[in-house]
Amino acid sequence: MAATLVTGISGSLARRVADRLVERGDTVVGVDYRPPPAALDKRIRFFQANYNKTRIEDVFRHCTFDRVLHLGRVGNLKESMGKRFDLNVVGSQKILNLCLAGGVKRLVVFSTFHIYGAHPANHIPISEEDPLHAGTDFPQIADAIQLDNMASRWVYQHRGIRTVVLRPTNVIGPAIQNAIANLLRQPRIPHLMGYNPMVQFIHEDDMAAAILAAADGEQVGIFNVAGDGVMPWRTALRLVRASTFPIPAAAVELYLSIFSRFPHYLVNFFRYPCVITDRRFREAFHWAPRIPMEDMLWSTVEEARKRQGFT
């Protein structure tokens, strides 16, 4: 049986997906531009390769894939914009071309809901055909928008590869180390004075199940993935038992540059809502989230709160 390639394997979500595939007997190859994760399952063959360099080509020479789960979008803002562009745009283009040449049958691309942007005029909920507004507010997200556009075009340009583009909301969970999950683990979390927009979350287990459903399914297209969690930001802060304090909107840039590593360009998500609907995904792939909102948030921070001496 041909193998499944999982990109971004050093990240916890891709790892979780890969583990589930291996558990059910699939052959899995993992690739990442970062070093391999600790204690990676021995049944997963690992390659370290930048997606935009020739090493990635060699991965496709070593193995034949019938499925590629491209989960390795770099959302990590520690990487410079130039490097993110190389990995996310140039690298994804390369992976797509390798899929085409290698006769891959199924491609799942992990995009993000950030590309819709948090905008005062946003209607609720946002569906897949709504415009990608984010670029007008923060050009730093250009790489994510271009990756999504490229993959979306691929869906219809190359019908032989049955492509699914997923635009998930905030993914959180005990193993997730993205900007939002790390922010929730802080003991004191600021909010924007006078604003309390609706936010959504999806638990890593539900997200992994969604990716597997997309990988196993037949449908092609672009799909939001949201889960059930719609709540105001400060309700989320209460559920993670963080104390919170207001920052005037005018001072937020200053605050972030001094006290926080949280990406500036996501600030609008704490001011305006960006609530998405995943009705189409649920119908197409017979998937539904299982983790209740409260558990989703608490499980993300439980370890951190224990370390912080929170009982």
Partner: peptide, 29 residues
């Protein structure tokens, strides 16, 4: 009006009371 979400505090009071941005998709839903 589409600018109400930009008004601090007002946006919270309005949203909690059921006001929404005047947008055809909101209205249709």
């Amino acid at each position: 009006e589409r600018w109400f979400p930009t008004l601090p505090w007002v946006n919270i009071a309005f949203s909690r009371s059921g006001v929404v941005v005047g947008d055809p998709i909101n209205c249709k839903n």
